[in-house]
Structure formats: structure tokens, C-alpha cells
């Protein structure tokens, strides 16, 4: 199995992610209604619809992986609207600044991209692990990929490990108290609810498994 991720696969990843977010709008809204201002679903749906539209447009060409991520970032920044816009925007923008091989990335490069994205996200949101945010999903996922990489696992295994860690991280947000964003105003009353940002972030890793570890037929 190929150990590199192509531009075509990345494109498919973000289309699948957009589909997932659009399908899960109501769930995200419901989660955000419990502890936030109930706009995460509609904001993410609006942003990812724009992303999807651009990605499905055959005319859209990307010079390289960096340009691809930058384009995703700029679309999200301008179309999401809520705090998720600059947060996801920063994630992809920082990922874009990490080294890659033009139209493809290998596992070490891809892992490093996600690490760059995570670091940027944490700087932007000033959030740490256990603050009940998207960081609770993304950080364990990135760490799982780094561990898989260090132990010489394949791309498919690394992506599966990341998804598993992301899911556990997302579910863990149910048990913890929010320290960031509007949910933090609720204090202990935020406990018992899964964080909407952690949930939308989980879908990234969920869709990555299918999109990035199998070849794109057309390529």
C-alpha cells in the first residue's frame, strides 16, 4: 500500500469531511445548544459547503499540498463566521507551512503538518488539553500518529490509531468542565455534554482513514 498521500486523496478527504459536517449539522447544533450558542452546526455547514463547492469545481487547481491547505484555510476563515472559522483556519494555514513534497506528503510529513496545525490552533485559541475544546480531539490524534510513526507503523495503521485516539478524546469531553469559550460560563454545568468543537474535529480523523489510506481511482 502506498505510503504517500496525494493531492487527490487530500481533496477527497476534505470533500468527505464536508459531507460529514453537512450531514451532522443538527447533531452539532444540538451539542452546541446545550453548552454554547447553538451556532456551531450552521457555521460549520456554511463553511464546509463553500469548501465542498470549491473542491468539486474541476477548474480549481492547486500548485501543491501547501496551496491546497491554504485554500481550505482561507475558505473557512471567510465562510464559517464563529470562533471555529479562525480556529480551523489557523489549523489548516499552519499545516500548509510545514514541509511537503509538492503534490504529495509522506507519513512523517503529514504527521508534522498536523502537529504544526495543532500548535497553531492552541496558540490561536489559547486552549490546552482538558479545556473541553477541539484540542481534546486533535492533540491525542496527533500524538497517536506520532507514536505510530515512531514505531514504524504504516500510514493506514497511523490513521486508524489517530481516529481511535480522536474518538476517545472527543468522548472524554463529556466528563470534563469547559475552560474556554462560551461553555466556560457554565462552569460545572458544562459537565455531561460532549463538546461540539471536539465533535466536528473528530470527523476530520474519521474521514481521513477512508480518504487517505485508499487510492483515488482516477489517479
Amino acid at each position: 500500500m502506498a505510503q504517500e498521500i496525494t493531492l487527490g486523496q487530500l481533496r477527497r478527504w476534505l470533500i468527505l469531511y464536508a459531507d460529514r459536517i453537512i450531514a451532522e449539522e443538527e447533531q452539532l447544533t444540538r451539542l452546541d445548544a446545550a453548552i454554547g450558542d447553538a451556532d456551531h452546526g450552521v457555521n460549520m455547514r456554511r463553511g464546509l459547503e463553500k469548501v465542498r463547492e470549491r473542491l468539486l469545481d474541476e477548474e480549481t487547481q492547486y500548485a501543491d499540498v501547501g496551496a491546497f491547505f491554504r485554500s481550505i484555510a482561507m475558505t473557512l476563515i471567510s465562510a464559517v463566521g464563529g470562533a471555529a472559522g479562525p480556529l480551523y483556519g489557523t489549523f489548516f494555514l499552519r499545516a500548509a507551512t510545514s514541509p511537503h513534497n509538492g503534490e504529495r506528503v509522506d507519513l512523517p510529513q503529514f504527521t508534522r503538518m498536523l502537529r504544526f496545525g495543532l500548535d497553531g490552533l492552541q496558540q490561536r485559541g489559547k486552549a490546552h488539553i482538558n479545556d473541553k475544546t477541539m484540542v481534546d480531539t486533535i492533540q491525542p490524534a496527533v500524538e497517536a500518529m506520532e507514536a505510530a510513526l515512531a514505531s514504524g507503523q504504516s500510514l493506514a495503521v497511523a490513521l486508524a490509531a489517530a481516529k481511535q485516539a480522536a474518538r476517545l478524546g472527543m468522548e472524554h469531553t463529556i466528563e470534563i468542565r469547559a475552560n474556554k469559550g462560551r461553555a466556560s460560563y457554565l462552569g460545572d454545568r458544562s459537565i455531561g455534554h460532549q463538546d461540539p468543537g471536539a465533535t466536528s474535529a473528530y470527523f476530520l480523523f474519521e474521514t481521513a482513514v477512508v480518504a487517505l489510506s485508499t487510492p483515488v481511482p482516477k489517479e
Partner: peptide
Amino acid sequence: GGLTDDPYTLGTDAAL
């Protein structure tokens, strides 16, 4: 104010 493409949607836009 608002978003580039959806001016009357509430939100903020770093590009704008």
C-alpha cells in the same frame, strides 16, 4: 462586519 460572501450572516472574517 459579517462575512465576505454572506454579509448579513452574523460572524467575523479575518480576510475581511
